[in-house]
Design a protein around this nucleic acid. Structure first.
Length: 806
RNA sequence: GCCGGUGUGGCGGAAUUGGCAGACGCAGGGGACUUAAAAUCCCCCGGUAGCGAUACCGUACCGGUUCGAACCCGGUCACCGGCACCA
């Protein structure tokens, strides 16, 4: 019989679907649970990408193996369907985004089923489903009630092309992350979420989760905790100049101060600044630069000295000049910094450019050449009054104590993380369930009125002023205040796409619940997610946002765990044939449908797992796919030619046990490529030795997570299904016998003075003397050791012996 | 500029974490089967020298530690990803 993958795959996919083979069971205490999560896809019009197939297949392999190991596995799928591409498509083609979403989702579902993923299809979620976003709105209302959602007028990133406000986190390389359009700064009243209140916990709780290290590092760096001191200087006009510094030990070294161009003091001081025209011109120039440009234009420092006002150093009592410069950002610290050119390289450059004095307060470097910035015990304090003679490490706490006692400062922790801009002036998002009443202010909608549905609009275009399309729906906007009953207006901004994806994994636990986002029992049973795999591109935004929401839900008693995900891993990108990113414009996009049509889903799955190191980027090779197909053909041929015995052949036993061990360990460590290599080796072994059905049984069990359809078919053909039931229902992942993985003799490497000179065959666990004798007997060893004396031998058991001769 | 990561045959990649570098696969070469081709099966496949056994070189580059280094340490270069002049 021929390996007819098309009909085999269709047959089993239909069976699995009809019999709900992969349904997870809520509350089953008889088994351990395992919740494997992948990042749910955005259902774009282009359909599923091979880039999706890599993480999806990997988690499918893990989940199929976990099922065979007896776990109650929850492996769900859903769609993160709000967002701009769908809305843009709707605008262009005058189709309702809900319709576009529905069609795209149907296409995705077909493709996912075509690849044979073992999802529990009864738990599908869709963020645009009102029954889903009801709970997104509900969570937002709880945050609003706890004071975590607030409105603020602030400079925001305005994408001139999307006409939408972007979070700082969404601006990439100074342009809009989504469309690449120009981003300028604009004042706008926005709903904000106070993620910074959770900054400490978002850092500290990383200690308790099993995330790969680079993800933890990225999260920590993004939050950016810095422990320093706030110190008050005084201006000569009496105003207080508070600075934030991590180096309060260098206070005596301050020779100037800098104020941010946005600082409100500047307008207040207008009449006192003698060179106001020059200062105002500089402020105007700075306002036209984005934060990004100000950061990018690094090398050359710019600034203007304020004439008429100086600052007084509280430690030395000396007067120092005050500058305005755009390297000081209003959004971090206090918007004023102290300049210590001796011990900060940026300050050193600034001082050098403006001819300011450079005072050494830490001895140890050469401050005429560059700033001396070491914070350890290397330097000794000088020119610093009561700090003199201390190391920097001693001086920092001493100075903290001093400024606190003097009442001119205190220790302070700062974060890089900023609050989350949560408003979008867009149609295709969750409506924000708040009403603005002239009497009562912002009032939450009663929970009984959720979900607040997106109204139908005539046009999805943003208004010229940048208001959401919802603003045009006056019937919808004008409402009554839930509080006083008077006339009031709805919020017309919608939520960002991140909202729905911040909690979706909870909905999977109990997707049809209409009383709560999920039942207490379901949350207790399935939390936390045992293993979450996703892309590195989501390690700062999505991962941080969802951890934040989860911590909030924990605080209000909704979820039982502090952290949503016990384990997080990451996969590398699939690049195009030439090693470049796959993109429509390059014409190098690989469509999974084509691969499945030509080779079958099992080949596609096996190849994408075999393609390379899971964590690294790899390029697709249409040639190499054939290797995986050839491998499955060989498995098929073995089944045709295997002898009918259900016994295991002694000649194959060691290879089988070795392979069980290797594949078991490798799947747990995401080393799918070497797991498949081991299976290929076993197949080669069976070709060489011949094999029985009993031998093949193990190969099929081990191969089934990777290539489930062909295995299911062969399992049936070889009579195992009649004896043991369907492969997909097996709960016997094979165990290995360690003692059977090693042969009775081993090959050991023989080195002379660390150089390989030959190998010996010798009994396992041979004693040193036997090994050395056998090694010395080798011709090449004799030659290399000729006329010399053996002074030492190094033995690595069963691996290597190194003879040191002189 | 800073932070993180990576660098191994013609190519994708292995190497039990300091112990035989190149598993497994792709491409390539040779052979068997075939009228022929495809498919399949078997063998070879890092470099230099040699008919050969073999010798020497070889994991981006330079140096170090070690009996022994792709792996550890110091320095350099290249590429990829992230970014905040963060006081």
């Amino acid at each position: 019989m021929k390996y007819d993958f098309t009909s085999i795959e269709k047959k089993w996919q239909e069976k699995w679907l009809k019999e709900k083979t992969f349904a997870a069971v809520n509350g089953d205490k008889s088994r351990e649970k395992f919740f494997g999560l992948i990042e749910f896809p955005y259902p774009s019009g282009q359909g599923l990408h091979v880039g999706h197939a890599r993480p999806f297949t990997a988690m499918d392999v893990i989940c199929r193996k976990k099922r065979m190991q007896g776990y109650n596995v929850l492996f769900p799928i859903g769609y993160d369907a709000f967002g701009l591409p769908t809305e843009n498509y709707a605008v262009q083609h005058h189709i309702h985004p809900a319709k576009v979403t529905h069609d795209n989702v149907a296409n995705f579902r077909n493709q996912l089923q075509m690849l044979g993923y073992s999802f529990d299809w009864d738990r599908e979620v869709n963020t645009t489903d009102p029954e889903y976003y009801k709970w997104t709105q509900w969570i937002f209302l709880q945050m609003f009630k706890k004071g975590l959602a607030y409105k603020a007028s602030m400079p925001v990133n305005w994408c001139t092309s999307c006409k939408i406000v972007l979070a700082n986190e969404e601006v990439v390389d100074g342009v809009c992350e989504r469309c690449g359009g120009e981003v300028i700064r604009k004042e706008k009243s926005q709903w904000m979420l106070a993620i910074t209140k959770y900054a400490d916990r978002l850092i500290d709780d990383l200690d308790d989760v099993d995330f790969i290290n680079r993800v933890k590092i990225q999260q920590r760096n993004w939050i950016g905790r810095s422990e320093g001191t706030e110190v008050d200087f005084t201006a000569t006009n009496g105003d207080k100049l508070t600075v934030y510094t991590t180096r309060c030990d260098t206070l005596f070294g301050v020779t100037y101060m800098v104020i941010s161009p946005e600082h409100p003091y500047l307008q207040q001081w207008k009449d006192q600044i003698k060179n106001w025209d020059a200062v105002a011109a500089y402020m105007d120039e700075a306002a036209h630069k984005s934060d990004f440009e100000r950061g990018e234009l690094n090398k050359e420092k710019t600034g203007v000295r304020l004439e008429g006002i100086e600052a007084i150093n509280p430690a030395s009592g000396e007067k120092v000049p005050l500058f305005v410069s755009d390297y000081v950002l209003m959004g971090y610290g206090t918007g004023i910094v102290m300049g210590v050119p001796g011990h900060d390289q940026r300050d050193w450059e600034f001082a050098t450019k403006f001819g300011l004095p450079i005072i050494e307060v830490v001895q140890g470097g050469d401050i005429t050449k560059e700033a001396f910035t070491l914070k350890d015990d290397t330097g000794i304090m000088v020119n610093s009054g009561f700090l003199n003679g201390m190391t920097v490490k001693e001086a920092i706490p001493a100075m903290k104590e001093w400024v606190t006692k003097q009442g001119i400062g205190h220790p302070k922790v700062n974060f890089k993380l900023r609050d989350w801009v949560f408003s979008r002036q867009r149609y295709w998002g969750e409506p924000i369930p708040l009403v603005n009443c002239p009497k009562c202010g912002w009032v939450p909608l009663p929970e009984s009125e959720l979900p607040l549905l997106l109204p139908e609009v005539e046009s999805y275009e943003v208004t010229d002023t940048g208001e959401s399309p919802l603003a045009k729906m006056t019937d919808w906007v004008n409402t009554t205040c839930p509080c006083c009953g008077g006339p009031a207006q709805r919020e017309t901004d919608t939520m960002p796409q991140w909202a729905g994806s911040s909690w979706y994994f909870l909905r999977y636990m109990d997707p049809h619940n209409d009383k709560a986002l999920a039942s207490k029992e379901a949350l207790e049973y399935w939390s936390p997610v045992d293993w979450y795999n996703g892309g590195m591109e989501h390690t700062t935004l999505h991962l941080l946002y969802s951890r934040f929401w989860h911590k909030f839900l924990y605080d209000i008693g909704v979820v039982p765990t502090k952290e949503p995900y016990a384990k997080r891993t990451s996969h590398g990108m699939i690049l195009g044939e030439g090693g470049e990113k796959m993109s429509k414009s390059r014409g190098n996009v690989v469509n999974p449908n084509d691969i499945v049509a030509q080779y079958g889903a099992d080949t596609m799955r096996t190849y994408i797992m075999f393609i390379g190191d899971f964590e690294k980027a790899v390029s697709w090779s249409s040639e190499a796919v054939k290797g995986s197909k050839r491998f499955l053909d060989r498995v098929w041929n073995l089944a045709e030619s295997a002898s009918e015995s259900y016994e295991v052949t002694p000649a194959n036993e060691a290879a089988i046990h070795k392979t069980i061990k290797k594949v078991t360990d490798d799947i747990d460590n995401l080393k799918m490529n070497t797991a498949i290599a081991a299976l290929m080796t076993l197949v080669n072994e069976f070709y060489a030795n011949g094999c029985t059905r009993g031998d093949l049984r193990y190969l099929l069990l081990l191969l089934s997570p990777f290539a489930p359809h062909i295995v299911e078919e062969l399992w049936e053909n070889l009579g195992f299904a009649a004896r043991e039931g369907k492969m997909a229902c097996q709960t016997q992942w094979p165990a290995y016998d360690e003692s059977k993985t090693v042969a009775s003799t081993v090959e050991m490497a023989v080195q002379v003075n660390g150089k390989l000179r030959g190998t010996i065959q010798i009994a396992v666990d041979s004693e040193e003397k036997a090994v050395v004798d056998a090694a010395m007997a080798l011709d090449k060893v004799q030659k290399a050791a000729e006329g010399k004396q053996l002074v030492k031998t190094i033995l690595v058991k069963n691996k290597l012996v190194n003879l040191i001769v002189k």
